[in-house]
Structures are given as C-alpha cells and as structure tokens.
Simulated assay, not measured.
Amino acid sequence: MPKGSSTVWLWLTALIGAGLAALDLAMGPATSLIGLLLVCPMVASAQQGGRVTATVSAATLALAVGVSAAEHDLGRGDTPVRLLILAVASAYATGVARRSTRHQRQLKRIAAVAERAIIRPTDFRIAGLEVSARYRSAAPQAHIGGDLYAFANTPMGLRLLIGDVRGKGLSTVHLSAAAIGHFRDAAYTQPDLLDVVRELDGRLAGDLGPEDFITVLIAEVAPDHVRLVNCGHHPPLLVPGTGAPTLLVPPLSATPIGLGPAPVVHEAPLTDGDRLLFYTDGLAEARDRTGAMPDLRKVARLCAAADLEDALDTVLDAVDRHTGHTTAADDIALILLEAAPAPTQQPAPVPRQEQGAADPEAPSAVGQ
C-alpha cells in the first residue's frame, strides 16, 4: 500500500479508538463501549502488516483498560470478559496481518521471477546488426508492468516486437507472455509482416477483455533497411550516423491490438552507423516537475554513445534526472540497435527461447 494511504488508515484507526473511548466516558459507567474497540485492530489488520497491527492492538487494549479504570469498572460486571474478548480479537487480527504480509512477500517474489522470465536485458550481434534491450519496472517491488519486447531470428531477417499492455499488475503478465509467444510463432511462420499482426490480433482475441488492448510495434530489420508495422505505439527514433534524428511515423495511424488494427507497412533505409531506438511510455511520457516530457532530440544525442549498452544506461539515468529521481509513473522498455559491418566470424543466432522481458541542471539532459 502507498505510504500516504497507509498513514490515512492509521489516523482513521486512531480517531475511531479515541471517539469510542470519549463516547464511553461521556455516557458514564452505566454503558460500556469498550467491546466496540475491537474495530481498531480489525481495521489495522486489513491495511497494515503484523508489526503495526500488534502495536495498534496493544494501544487499543491499553485504551480499553484505561477507560474501564477511569469508570471504576475494571473488575466489575462483564468488563473482564469484554477485555478478554478484545485481547483475543487483537491477537487474531495480528496473526491475520502477519500471514497476509508473508503471502504478499511470496507473491512479490513470484512476480519478480515471472518478470525476469518474460523480459530480461538482452545484448547480441547478428547479421550485421548490434542489438541491446533493457526493461525497468515502475515499481518492481510491488507489481509487474505491462511493457514487453521479444526477438525472432527468422528466414526473413531479424524481427522484433515492442509493446505496452494496458494496465498493470499480474493480469498483464498473462497478456505479456501470450503476446510474446504468439508473436514468436507468427514471426517464424508468416512471411508478411501484416500477416504477423493479423495472427497476433486473432490469437490474443480470446485473452483480451472488452477494455484491454496492447500497443505494439513490429519491425523487420536488415543492415540496409527496416520495415515497420505500427499499431498505436510510439514511432521509433532513427539516429543516423550523420544528420538529424527522425521519428519514423507511419503514413497511416492504426489502432492497438485488440481494437481491430488495420496497419500498413512502411520502410526506411539504414546505413552503417545508423541507430534505431524503440521505446515505450516510460520514456516518451516521463514528466519533470513542470510537467514537461523528454525532448527526443536530446535523447537521440544520448543514444549516440559509442557502446549500445552504455547508451541505454545513459538514457535511463537521464530519465531519472529528468523526473527528479521520483518513482516512475510507467515502466520503461528500450531497444537500441545499430546497423554495423558484419563480423569476420560466423555470428551466433538468437535462440528461439531468448526473449526480452542530483545535479540540479541534469534534467536538461532529456528535458525540453
């Protein structure tokens, strides 16, 4: 739970306890409300961990004892029974909170393993191309994001997918894994990129809910050209060896996967030294304190670093500085590739199972 929300619930629990105690004292010894104080540990167990719930339970029990003592009712009537019930309920609430905390930690570990299995950093060289990819979740300690990427070394050339599943959480893991698996099947079997999109859209139809969709960009890359099919995704950034950077915007816009896309294939030439940056919302829509988003021309300059891996690390660091090192609002997936002369030795193919998943002036590195 976010820290702010947690604090609100703690204050609410304190107000409930204080209110019940004050009302009990105002009504006098004839009426006892201490039994109602068990609401406090129950509320705490639903929103807090075991340690906080235990603290709230102890404070609640002390408050009940104090109210009973103030009314000189501590050892009379059914007050001891009420206090015993409150103590048992508090112990139960603390146990529930501790079990819930352990369960959540286990889910987070499972989620982290699943995330690394679906999308992981990738660096390889193949057929006159050098490729590097990175993924960073907005909150890896809490949930898995919906960004995804994958590669397929097909007879038609190197094909890649980058996309963004609408929403967050464990449900996106299923959609991300399904999209990657269907893309890889279609990329190897369909010679036409448009058929790859059609098959991807058709296969995902049974997985997507009525409000679900996935923005995707599929590319077929050769050392001298790139062919692109864009379904509602951010256009890639061409960083030429010489000249100004260019966004490869499709001639016609298309809807995302799940919304009946009708994309077109468009092509751009590549020469030795040209680089292509594929990215998701986490880069394109990262905002600084004024709400300004990154200037992709400055991002292009960062992508011109000598080493692809260093270039991506530099871009991620610049995004952190641009946002003031605050918690990212979205995940970031990046693919940077370069058209390079073929190596003298035979390159190792991409295995079919390989897949992706404080200076105050520094924000100007990617800012407008």
Results as ranks from 00 to 15, higher is better:
6 S>M: 09
8 V>Y: 13
10 L>R: 14
11 W>F: 06
11 W>Q: 02
17 G>F: 07
17 G>P: 12
18 A>I: 14
20 L>A: 10
22 A>G: 10
24 D>R: 09
28 G>Y: 03
34 I>Q: 04
34 I>T: 06
36 L>N: 11
37 L>V: 12
39 V>N: 13
41 P>G: 06
42 M>T: 10
50 G>N: 10
56 V>I: 13
58 A>P: 09
58 A>G: 14
60 T>N: 08
61 L>N: 07
62 A>F: 07
65 V>S: 09
67 V>H: 13
69 A>N: 05
71 E>A: 11
71 E>M: 08
82 R>Y: 07
84 L>C: 13
84 L>M: 14
92 Y>S: 07
92 Y>N: 07
95 G>P: 10
96 V>N: 08
100 S>Q: 13
101 T>N: 09
102 R>C: 05
103 H>P: 04
109 R>F: 05
113 V>P: 03
116 R>F: 07
117 A>F: 05
118 I>G: 04
120 R>V: 05
123 D>C: 02
125 R>Y: 01
125 R>L: 01
125 R>D: 01
134 R>D: 00
135 Y>C: 11
142 A>P: 05
144 I>E: 11
151 F>I: 00
155 P>L: 02
155 P>R: 04
158 L>P: 03
158 L>K: 02
161 L>V: 00
162 I>R: 07
163 G>I: 08
165 V>R: 10
166 R>E: 10
166 R>W: 10
168 K>Y: 02
171 S>P: 02
173 V>N: 03
174 H>E: 10
184 R>G: 00
184 R>L: 00
185 D>A: 15
195 D>N: 15
196 V>G: 01
197 V>Q: 02
198 R>L: 03
199 E>C: 05
202 G>V: 04
207 D>F: 15
208 L>Y: 05
213 F>E: 14
217 L>K: 00
222 A>L: 00
224 D>E: 15
225 H>E: 05
238 L>N: 04
238 L>F: 07
239 V>R: 07
240 P>F: 07
241 G>C: 01
241 G>M: 00
241 G>P: 01
244 A>M: 10
246 T>Q: 15
251 P>E: 02
251 P>N: 02
259 L>A: 07
262 A>N: 13
267 E>D: 02
271 T>V: 08
272 D>I: 06
277 L>G: 03
286 A>S: 15
290 T>G: 09
297 R>H: 12
298 K>Y: 12
299 V>A: 03
302 L>P: 05
304 A>F: 02
305 A>K: 14
309 E>V: 06
316 L>F: 08
317 D>F: 09
318 A>V: 12
322 H>E: 04
323 T>G: 15
327 T>L: 13
332 I>C: 02
335 I>R: 04
343 P>M: 05
343 P>S: 07
346 Q>Y: 03
